[in-house]
Design a protein around this nucleic acid. Structure first.
Lengths: 138, 138
DNA sequence: CTGTGTGCAAAACGTTTGCATGCCT
DNA sequence: AGGCATGCAAACGTTTTGCACACAG
């Protein structure tokens, strides 16, 4: 995700509006490495902006995803998580508490779609999910 | 997943029962490489066994998952998919039609959790999801 | 002033559960 | 006969939608 300042311009360039709710969501996501779910974003925004609605959180996250500003993580079977870091990277998830950490190692030299499948799929990227148990749960 | 024959014994060993519904589900999953969702399994079972219920499909898939006979794939944001192949392998998914194919290349020599994270997580494995567009959608 | 964003309530969706009945062993 | 499985309906949690009102540009 860009800085809140740049993001503001990006939205305006798309004919979108900057509201205090959105600014709050942007600030909470900026440099956030906790991979929050929509509900976790909602709770944090609500502390500062108590009248915000769940609908606004969902719609704003959808907007940010469509703009390519956040990545929607499909790794926890129960809910989606959002990652403002859109650089190529990977994740470890605890099978018990569902805590997600970033894995910044670059595997792109070794991980490639086999040639036999290249005729069937035009691949845009890949995502590695490590599964295990975190030290808090162990 | 084991053969239907062996699977039958495995279930009996666990004090579980073999019903025509279950046999139907097993047969549809056996050697199935289409990564069906619960609904797709339901539809296929229903053709042959029209009175089967969705509940039975869900509960049987859950049972098979708990026995380690099928793998639950969390790769499509809309629904879970089931894979009777429990050998280590990976997947490509079409972002458009959600078709999933197997990737059998072994990346385990190169894909490992960085040492810096090994103190935080006891990793049991990893899953690589390639994302792209399949030739039918392109 | 125009149109996008908000917030409420309700719907939608995949999935799970409680419970009476059915049937495998 | 006993107990696990089935199937219905209802509940569940997350996400989406319709619509009237609010407010940013």
């Amino acid at each position: 995700m860009e800085t809140v300042e740049k993001l503001t311009k990006t939205l305006r360039n798309h004919g979108m509006k900057i509201t205090p709710q959105r600014l709050m969501i942007f600030k909470i996501l900026e440099n956030n490495t906790s991979h929050p779910s929509a509900e976790q974003v909602f709770k944090r925004v609500k502390k500062i902006y108590p009248t915000v609605s769940f609908t606004t959180i969902y719609k704003t996250l959808e907007t940010l995803r469509d703009l390519g500003e956040v990545q929607e993580l499909i790794i926890d079977e129960d809910r989606k998580h959002y990652d403002p870091n859109t650089d190529t990277h990977h994740h470890v998830i605890c099978s018990n508490c569902k805590k997600i950490l970033d894995v910044f190692e670059d595997f792109s030299q070794h991980v490639k779609l086999p040639d036999t499948l290249k005729k069937d799929y035009t691949v845009s990227g890949f995502q590695i999910s490590f599964h295990g148990i975190c030290k808090d749960c162990n």
